[in-house]
Write a protein that binds this DNA or RNA. Structure first.
Lengths: 164, 164
DNA sequence: CCTCATTGCGCAATCG
DNA sequence: GCGATTGCGCAATGAG
């Protein structure tokens, strides 16, 4: 008995009176064992009565539910409460959906921010590396610089220095 | 003028009453043997249809709709079609919600990835900068070193840092 | 005017 | 037993 939720027999019994429409469409599949014979639903047939008359022995309380009298005051009260709960639940659900959507937007923004930062850092890194290389070359070229040159003309060698 | 719908009433609004209609469509069974009483009491109030204000003129089509006979075959057909559409719409809605949720997860992952990368790059940068500083200090200290060594500043530093 | 899509709502069955 | 969820159908409304 896992969870056979919603018995696919559309006994739509909403609104005021009961609407019994046996409709279980499914677009392209609807094979139900037509062995349902004594399918009774609305007709209230409360088997013996437990405590109200004198009998005794409370059965395992496994009996069919009385078709909830729609006139009952109890019923209306329960219905109203449920309607309220449903409303609340749906409101929450929608709110959650919106929040999630907003979260997506926020994350997307953050994402862009991060990517920009990465780009910046990468560029900085690249520049520093180039500087490094350049310097190394200078050292190599001027291992023995001819004394008498403060200008120390830099090596005209500085092409292609970008890598990523 | 956004969405003036629903009459806003805590009572059973539409569908004041419903009739038992054993729609022997073509699906399940449930041949209600129940003695279907003539529970038919649909408030039929078809206004004359004098709308335009005068006494004649063509129909500005502003009159109340006939309470859609639930018995009508046309009606049932329309209802079924709508039910199908509703189902479809809701399915899509749910799917969309799930997709959005997943998008959030993906974005979160991506963000983590990006942040990690930023961390790495920052570290690399920091190392390089330190190297530079160190070198600068060496230079400063040996502004005038007794020329006689080409390795003025060894700095065998080899903090390998590679970027993926 | 019609068809399909959306949306708010109530009902009932379950779940926790 | 009770509120929260969920699937479903209905009707009003929106959009094409």
């Amino acid at each position: 008995m896992s969870r056979p939720s919603q018995p696919k027999l559309t006994a739509t019994d909403h609104n005021g009176v009961s609407v019994i429409q046996s409709q279980a469409h499914a677009t392209t599949s609807s094979s139900l064992p037509a062995a349902i014979a004594g399918l009774q639903q609305v007709p209230q047939l409360i088997p013996a009565n437990p405590s109200t008359g004198g009998g005794k022995a409370l059965a395992p309380s496994k009996m069919k539910k009385p078709p909830a009298d729609k006139d009952s005051d109890e019923y209306r009260q329960r219905r109203e409460r449920n309607n309220l709960a449903v409303k609340k639940s749906r409101m929450r659900s929608k709110q959650k959906a919106m929040d999630t959507q907003q979260r997506v937007n926020e994350l997307k923004e953050e994402n862009e921010r991060l990517e920009a930062k990465i780009k910046l850092l990468s560029k900085e890194l690249s520049v520093l590396k180039d500087l490094f290389l350049e310097h190394a070359h200078n050292l190599a070229d001027n291992v023995q610089p001819p004394a008498g040159a403060e200008g120390s003309s830099p090596a005209p060698n500085s092409t292609a220095t970008n890598g990523q």
